[in-house]
Computed example of a mutant assay.
Amino acid sequence: MARWPPQSPPKRSSNLHLVRGRYREALSELIDRYPRSYYGLVHMGASNQRRFWREGEIGDLPGAAVIEAIASGRMWLNLRNVDTVDARYRDLLDSLFGELGDRVPRFSGATSTCGLLISSPNAQVYYHCDLPGQHLWQIEGRKKVYVYPSAPPFVSPENLEDIALFDVEVDMPYASWYDDYAQVFELAPGEMLTWPLNAPHRVENLDCLNVSMTVSFTDETIRRLQKVNLANGLLRHRFGYAAKDRAIAGPAYWSKAILQKALRESSWVRRERKTRRAVDFRLDPSRLGQIVELPVVG
């Protein structure tokens, strides 16, 4: 397999002890009480339909039916910030990063959050990258993860700026030849995968329901890079100025830190993010795995 440039492989771990038995029941109960503002439901197309991406909502379905609908459909449910909704996940995350901090000193100052991904057999997550550091912990099912180099042409500063500004990770350009430079891993229950900061990746589920825990973390360096990405994105899209400097210290950095803080909650940014995340379907309660079309509010 080709490398661009050569790099060490992501780290794997098999030390995750799964809780068996009633975990599906617990997962259903969690979905039952999950706040609408904290989850994302995405419907995607076949593997060659990369641009097919729709966002929807659960509606009144109970959690057990939601899991059945996902198992019968082609979608995934992202329960974001689950450590905020359920304190047990916060305790788990604190324990995990406490151990990481003991073993890897730079993790001692990291802040973290986690989510749960429930996804259909043969579903996919399109080519994208994330601004925070990432871990992926596999709980149920099996999936392939393709990890690409965190450098041009696979990811550009403009890509990172757009993610920071519009809060959408999957609009990145992708070409099939990128796969010649990917590292491919098949995750099974009890395994964890992590990769270099901002490394693009995509996921293909095998023919089974998948449940995974995603962990995002930031330290001071990552936080400063995120501020620079947002400030540079604002300068380029709002003011027509393509900033090349990506320094995370000095006068240029502090000017951008002030700029992004002043504008990140502006009506212009909120409008752009809302436009790009229109909700246009709901799960069909009478045909689990199918969807009901919703009118798009203009």
Rank of each mutant, 00 (worst) to 15 (best):
1 M>T: 10
2 A>S: 14
8 S>R: 08
8 S>N: 14
10 P>I: 01
11 K>W: 13
14 S>P: 02
14 S>G: 06
16 L>I: 15
17 H>M: 10
21 G>N: 07
23 Y>Q: 11
27 L>E: 05
28 S>V: 02
30 L>S: 00
34 Y>W: 06
35 P>W: 04
38 Y>A: 04
38 Y>F: 14
39 Y>D: 03
39 Y>L: 07
40 G>I: 06
44 M>L: 15
46 A>S: 05
47 S>Q: 07
47 S>E: 11
51 R>N: 15
55 E>I: 10
56 G>C: 04
57 E>Y: 07
65 A>Q: 14
66 V>I: 09
70 I>Q: 00
73 G>Q: 03
74 R>L: 11
76 W>M: 03
78 N>V: 03
79 L>W: 06
80 R>C: 00
81 N>S: 12
84 T>M: 09
85 V>H: 08
87 A>D: 10
88 R>T: 13
89 Y>M: 03
93 L>A: 02
93 L>C: 01
95 S>E: 09
97 F>P: 00
98 G>V: 04
100 L>P: 02
101 G>S: 04
102 D>C: 13
107 F>C: 07
108 S>C: 09
114 C>H: 02
115 G>K: 11
123 A>W: 00
124 Q>K: 12
125 V>G: 01
126 Y>Q: 09
127 Y>F: 13
134 Q>G: 09
136 L>P: 08
140 E>V: 15
148 Y>K: 07
150 S>Q: 11
150 S>H: 10
150 S>I: 07
152 P>I: 05
153 P>A: 00
155 V>K: 01
159 N>D: 14
162 D>W: 13
166 F>C: 00
167 D>S: 12
169 E>I: 10
171 D>V: 01
176 S>R: 10
178 Y>T: 04
183 Q>S: 11
183 Q>N: 04
185 F>R: 07
187 L>S: 01
187 L>E: 01
187 L>T: 11
193 L>Y: 12
195 W>L: 05
195 W>H: 01
197 L>V: 03
197 L>E: 04
197 L>R: 10
198 N>W: 02
199 A>K: 05
201 H>C: 01
201 H>S: 01
201 H>A: 01
202 R>M: 10
205 N>M: 00
210 N>S: 13
212 S>Y: 02
216 S>L: 09
217 F>K: 02
220 E>I: 14
223 R>V: 01
224 R>E: 01
226 Q>H: 10
226 Q>V: 06
227 K>C: 05
229 N>L: 02
229 N>P: 00
229 N>G: 02
232 N>Y: 09
232 N>K: 00
233 G>C: 07
234 L>M: 14
237 H>Y: 12
244 K>L: 11
249 A>K: 11
250 G>H: 12
252 A>C: 05
257 A>P: 03
263 L>E: 09
265 E>C: 08
266 S>N: 06
267 S>N: 08
269 V>Q: 05
270 R>K: 13
271 R>N: 06
272 E>Y: 04
272 E>K: 08
276 R>N: 06
277 R>W: 04
279 V>S: 08
280 D>T: 10
280 D>C: 15
285 P>I: 12
287 R>Q: 10
289 G>S: 03
289 G>L: 11
290 Q>E: 15
292 V>R: 13
295 P>W: 05
296 V>I: 14
298 G>R: 15
